[in-house]
């Protein structure tokens, strides 16, 4: 039950994009079409889950024993960027089509603040290993959900008669805001 709460808390109630406003860049940049948005979501989910694991190990076995908690940010950036590199190489070796489908989004994850935010939240909340994995996976699922919803709306908006001053970025901002408002409704389901 506790794990389920963590999962839904990360995925819906405290959605990384729509409640914490982390990872807005790919959310706005890669949400033009549903398939690419979904690929991006999958890549982020994978990296989030794996970096949650590694971050937990590094926090527990390196930083804390040595009293180096203040180096969290730096070491987590190191972890994430190395991990994205590794993921990229692995994906390419294992499945060339998947690598092609993800394209530029895979390396772009390196600079995704949602992942760093996740890694920093884990020690702050004192999650154990299982909880960390669930938290990371939930956050990734929430990211995917948000970006796919956004892409779906933007696809439909292509056929809408948007007033000229609102076309493009302004309209994207408005629907992102509406989406965020809608997600606030989940706040009552899961306690912060």
């Amino acid at each position: 039950m506790e794990l389920l709460l963590i999962f839904f808390g990360a995925a819906v109630a405290n959605n990384f994009i729509l409640a914490r406003f982390l990872g807005i860049c790919p959310f706005l940049g890669v949400s033009k079409e549903v398939p690419t948005a979904f690929s991006m979501g999958m890549a982020v989910t994978f990296v989030m889950t794996t970096s949650a694991i590694v971050a937990w190990f590094v926090q527990g076995f390196v930083l804390e024993p040595l009293g180096l908690e203040f180096l969290q940010t730096m070491s987590f950036i190191l972890i994430i960027s190395s991990f994205v590199q590794l993921t990229e190489m692995a994906v390419r070796k294992i499945s060339e089509p998947l690598y092609k489908a993800l394209g530029i989004f895979l390396p772009l994850i390196t600079t995704n603040c949602a992942i760093l935010g996740l890694a920093l939240l884990i020690p702050e909340r004192g999650y154990n290993l299982i909880e960390s994995v669930i938290f990371g996976f939930g956050a990734g699922a929430g990211f995917t959900l948000a970006i796919v919803l956004m892409a779906g709306m933007r696809e439909n908006l292509k056929f809408a008669d948007v007033p000229q001053p609102f076309q493009g970025a302004p309209m994207t901002m408005i629907i992102a805001g509406l989406l965020a408002l809608a997600f606030m409704g989940f706040g009552g389901i899961v306690a912060m």
Partner: peptide
């Protein structure tokens, strides 16, 4: 603390660098 920082981060960086180097050879396409 300074010693720990340098050594700790150095080792951490070293591990990742080695890992990536090995991976890049093993996973070379």
């Amino acid at each position: 603390l300074i010693k720990n920082s340098i050594i700790g981060m150095g080792i951490l960086g070293g591990i990742f660098a080695t890992g990536l180097t090995i991976a890049s050879v093993k996973l070379a396409v």
